[in-house]
Design a binder for these strands. Structure first.
Length: 803
DNA sequence: AGCACGCCGACT
DNA sequence: GTCGGCGTGCTC
């Protein structure tokens, strides 16, 4: 007898292990490791992943597998092992790891229904239950769960009148296209057309069309023949033609035509960067390269020529880009060069579209994937290279379980496939640059910009000076002048507002009271259009207050600046300017992002005003001015990476100006012009920033000198949150080595969220023998309280968000 | 997670 | 004596 070990779809500590099932004889040769199956689990039916097939089990009475969901394994040996690696390093459940590797469409949906076992029991049902079954034999649980007949229902189930049926739905609906074709043999077709009634003109036209084609999509036939669906129906009824469905891919870029491009001549620098990568591809040698190239130095061309080398070897490649820069521009470059060999995966696609792209990879119909974070799990079996563009971006870290970093996964997979990883950035993360300096990664450098102009000139404007000299506007005189210049010359400008931590909060000028969310320790944000105050974390809203809830004063004011407010002031100051605003509000609709950018690219506006999202990847020849309205808003976030992020952002933003013939200029407005992040970004001096920041990291004991782990404990009661965090910290102090530093318990920077108090404990360590084991003990200790009570403990073994 | 089982107080 | 509440422990 063959037995399958199955990981079931229950994300909990207790079920986080394989369960054994009998493999029915008829499937012994069909079932393979890595396939999804349906198994009985307790009273339920669940989806699961086969992780092992064996001949022996310790369990006496095994249940049998009920169904197989795949014709071929969806997880290969490598991905199964990668799942284990994720489980161990991020402390997640195996099921969560496996689900993260597959498109959402393949995750099961469960529906319960109550069915009448037999018509003869209908009269015996409890009188209160009967009405639900009056005209049908099954009722969905959804309809019943909020009624008051639940206990009666239970009785009837016990009596055997009713039964509970568990439906398992695959969301992975495949798209099909209807085709029509002749159903009569070829030699009879002409005759069939002739024998049609004389008035069946449309039918005749339709058939004539089919004479020259083996089969045609129904839609096309209808369009070209002008016939209606009725004609098709009659022809089918007459037995002349037939209709059938063919599985089809949704093609998100179906309408789009991509101009083919050829490899460009490389500069000497690019050539020198490319060579070691290509060597490592050819030699099947695992190596991590850090491609450090200033903005506009042509990293993408290096990527593409390296990919060509991979394809030449008959292998596959993954290119990761940050979600935010997965713009049509980027997609176009890859589709243009590699055509139909590319699959694209990003959050803008529907669940079905993502599933189709995934299947193209799985069926080996494509050789290259360009995608955001989760594309790192692309089920290639012959990986030749992994590229991570904008390597420093924090979006490569997933902030939900499994809390993996795509960079780590990339290195794991590349080691398995013995192939190179290329990390590219103009502002590498300190972690990566430090590793490159140590020789763990191989450093490749591009110092020259492709355009003649070199890097743009940056001026820093001290906004305190502006205020002192009486300018209360959010535009410094310099920035205003330069904006007007561009307008006169017909050139474009980009204005960048970093909204994080800079949203419009409401404060009383008399007593200083700030209106906060009733459920979270967060100040409420003023939304001008709706005249309401909203919490950005939990969604709580309330009407705008006109007097201070604390002291009653009417001197209550809005502080901070949103893009809307900037836009208003801008149109007041420069009424002739055409402004496009790009933020969450204007880009929430699908495709809006793309539309705004193409309008701006086509010169339909003079100024593009936006948040974070405009910092990445834009490349417009006519942009000669970039303004940063307030550079230091991000600097003061409670995050040890705040300075690094500020530096990276300013450098990225500055890189948007003057990428082509026209020279660029950058204006940075700040209240702390002396800060090294701002000064050094203005001087484009990454190296100096690296040295300075490394010294600080060393001094304060942060990465890359220490590893970090953040434990966050939340509970509706403050005392409980504190005491649990205290106990955990105590346990860790006792268990970990003397070198480990345990900070806390301290209140989380967001001390209350969704009516829950949040406390945290930060661990800094260099090497700990049993680190994950000790952390697992912590989780195990509080397992019951977490599953039954209100306690929640999250552990992040490589935190990027300290809140 | 979700379900059954079992023990307890409150009601017919 | 039964109904329905919630705490406990299991699911191959």
């Amino acid at each position: 007898m063959k037995i399958a070990a199955v990981i079931v779809d229950v994300p909990s500590r207790q079920t986080d292990r394989p369960f054994d099932y009998k493999i029915p004889e008829k499937w012994e040769d069909v079932l393979q490791i890595g396939m999804r199956v349906v198994v009985p689990f307790g009273t339920r039916r669940l989806q699961g992943f086969v992780v092992d097939i064996k001949t022996y089990s310790d369990v006496k009475s095994l249940k049998a597998i009920e169904a197989i969901l795949d014709v071929a394994p969806v997880l290969n040996e490598e991905l199964l092992r990668l799942g284990q690696y994720l489980t161990e390093t991020t402390l997640c459940f195996a099921i969560s790891a496996y689900q993260a590797m597959l498109p959402a469409a393949m995750k099961a949906k469960y529906e319960k229904e109550i069915r009448l076992v037999d018509e003869k029991y209908r009269d015996r049902l409890h009188p209160n239950v009967q009405p639900f079954f009056s005209n049908r034999s099954a009722v969905s649980w959804k309809e019943l769960e909020n009624t008051n007949v639940l206990s009666r229902l239970q009785k009837d189930v016990q009596n055997g009148y009713l039964e509970v049926i568990y439906h398992l739905k695959d969301k992975a609906a495949k798209k099909t296209i209807k085709y029509v074709a002749f159903s009569v043999p070829e030699e009879q077709r002409k005759k069939a057309i002739e024998s049609l009634p004389a008035n069946a003109v449309k039918q005749k036209q339709l058939l004539e069309l089919l004479l020259f084609n083996e089969h045609l999509p129904l839609k096309e036939v209808l369009e070209r023949s002008g016939a209606s669906h009725a004609s098709v129906k009659t022809l089918i009824q007459k037995g002349i033609i037939c209709e059938y469905e063919v599985e089809a891919y949704r093609d998100p870029y179906g309408q789009h035509h991509f101009a083919a491009t050829q490899p460009l001549m490389l500069t000497e620098e690019q050539q020198q960067a490319l060579e070691p990568i290509v060597n490592s591809i050819k030699e099947n040698e695992h190596q991590v390269f850090l491609l450090y190239g200033v903005t506009g130095s042509g990293k993408t061309e290096v990527y593409m020529q390296a990919i060509e080398a991979v394809l030449k070897q008959g292998k596959e490649a993954i290119v990761l880009v940050p979600e935010i820069s997965l713009t049509p521009q980027m997609v176009e470059r890859f589709k243009g060069r590699f055509g139909s060999q590319v699959a694209v995966l990003h959050s803008g696609l529907s669940i079905g579209e993502k599933y189709d792209e995934w299947r193209k990879i799985h069926r080996k119909e494509v050789k290259l994937v360009v995608g955001a974070r989760s594309a790192i799990f692309a089920p290639f079996e012959n990986l030749g290279m992994i590229i991570i563009d904008e390597e420093h971006e924090s979006s490569y870290k997933q902030e939900e379980t499994p809390r993996y970093h795509a960079r780590d996964v990339a290195i794991y997979r590349a080691r398995f496939h013995q192939c190179p990883v290329v990390l590219g950035s103009a502002t590498p993360s300190l972690e990566s640059f430090a590793r490159a300096k140590k020789g763990v990664y191989q450093l490749l450098t591009l110092t020259k910009r492709m355009s003649e102009n070199g890097l743009p000139a940056v001026s820093i404007i001290d906004m305190r000076e502006e205020l002192r000299s009486g300018n209360r506007s959010m535009f410094s005189r310099t920035l205003f002048e330069k904006l007007r210049e561009r307008l006169d010359k017909g050139e474009q400008s980009v204005l960048f507002l970093n909204r994080r931590g800079y949203s419009t909060f409401v404060m009383c000028r008399d007593c200083g009271h700030v209106i906060r969310c009733a459920h979270c320790d967060i100040s409420l944000t003023y939304h001008r259009v709706q005249q309401r105050l909203k919490c950005h974390y939990c969604g709580h809203e309330e009407p705008l207050a006109y007097s201070c809830p604390s002291c009653g004063s009417e001197h209550i004011r809005f502080f901070g600046t949103g893009t809307q407010k900037v836009e208003e002031e801008l149109t007041k100051l420069l009424p002739q300017a055409r402004v496009i605003r790009m933020d969450v509000d204007t880009t929430s609709r699908k495709g809006a992002h793309e539309r705004i950018l193409s309008e701006f690219g086509a010169g339909k506006a003079d100024i593009l005003l936006g948040t974070q999202m405009i910092a990445k990847g834009l490349d417009f020849p006519k942009v000669t001015l970039v303004g940063v309205l307030s550079a230091d808003t991000m600097l003061h976030l409670p995050d040890f990476r705040a300075c690094e992020k500020t530096f990276q952002l300013l450098t990225q933003v500055s890189g948007r100006a003057g990428r082509h013939e026209l020279p660029g200029e950058v204006v940075i407005q700040t209240y702390t012009p002396e800060h090294y992040s701002i000064e050094l970004a203005a001087r484009h001096d990454y190296e100096a920033f690296y040295q300075k920041e490394m010294a600080l990291r060393r001094f304060h004991g942060y990465p890359p000198f220490y590893y970090l782990t953040l434990i966050t404990v939340s509970h509706p009661e403050l005392i409980k949150a504190v005491s649990v965090t205290e106990k955990i910290a105590g346990y860790l102090r006792a268990q970990l080595s003397k070198e480990a530093i345990i900070l806390g318990p301290v209140a989380s920077p967001i001390a209350r969220l969704h009516d829950r108090y949040r406390y945290q404990c930060m661990i800094k360590y260099k090497r700990e023998a049993n680190f994950t084991k000790i952390l697992k003990n912590v989780v195990d200790r509080y397992q019951q309280e977490m599953s039954q009570g209100e306690l929640l403990i999250t552990i992040d073994t490589n935190p990027y968000m300290m809140m």
